[in-house]
Simulated assay, not measured.
Amino acid sequence: METKFTRPLTDLTVQDDGLTIEGYASLFGLPDQGGDIMERGAYAKSLERLATHGDSVKMLWQHDPSEPIGLWEEVREDARGLRVKGRLLPEVARGREAAALIRAGAIDGLSIGYRTVRATKDSQGRRRLHEVELWEVSLVTFPMLREARLAAKGADLALLHEMTAAVAQARARLMG
């Protein structure tokens, strides 16, 4: 079963102007550090609702709702877990900082923000999440599910590095 939510790109005038990132924000069948286990299909209804209402999963920095740093252009559930693909916005200061931290290898964690809709307890007392309402996927230092990680594309890293340097030079000229 594959459920997919894709954000339309028609409202964007410039593509590939940021850092493209992707990875698994959640993996099925693995306990997180709190003992919760996400089951296959847990995101399906939420992604369907988001698509129906034209809403999107937010990309945040460290789960802070006041710190959006980019756009998730694709959020989909596949056989392995919740796969995300998006881009950091270089026009946002925290987005540039996140890009620098990713480039340096200091940040590579992904974590989800959600509300539990339906869960059961297994024989070991762990929660098995069968349905959740997904709100956001954050870049984080320490993901609750250690295996939830991202990978960045090198070409986009180089482009963002050039853009960040150009912004710094322009700022220096204006301030100096």
Rank of each mutant, 00 (worst) to 15 (best):
P68F: 07
L50S: 12
L60F: 12
P68N: 02
M38Q: 06
K45E: 13
P68A: 08
Q62P: 05
E67W: 01
S56G: 07
T52N: 06
D64S: 14
S46H: 04
R76G: 08
E48A: 15
G41I: 00
E74N: 15
R49D: 12
E73R: 08
E73C: 13
L71W: 12
R76A: 11
G54C: 07
R40V: 02
R40M: 09
E77H: 05
W61I: 00
W61V: 03
A51R: 14
E67P: 02
G41L: 02
A44C: 01
G41W: 04
R49S: 15
W72R: 11
S56Q: 12
D55H: 09
P68W: 07
L60T: 03
V75M: 11
E67V: 06
V75N: 11
W72Q: 03
Q62H: 14
H63W: 08
A44P: 01
M59E: 08
S46K: 03
W72V: 07
E48C: 01
R40W: 00
G70E: 03
A42P: 03
S46M: 02
M38S: 04
K45Y: 00
R40K: 12
H63M: 05
W61C: 08
R76K: 14
D64M: 10
M59R: 09
K58S: 15
L71Q: 10
S66N: 14
L71F: 14
L71V: 12
A51I: 00
I69A: 05
L71G: 01
Q62N: 15
Q62E: 14
R49Q: 06
L71T: 13
H53S: 12
E77P: 02
W61L: 04
Q62R: 07
H63V: 03
G41P: 05
Y43T: 04
G70Y: 01
E73V: 09
W61M: 08
K45T: 11
D55P: 03
D55G: 13
R40E: 11
A42T: 08
H53I: 04
R76F: 10
S66A: 14
L60C: 01
V75W: 13
L60M: 04
V57G: 04
E73N: 15
E48W: 02
W72N: 02
A51C: 02
M59L: 11
P65A: 11
G70H: 07
H53Y: 09
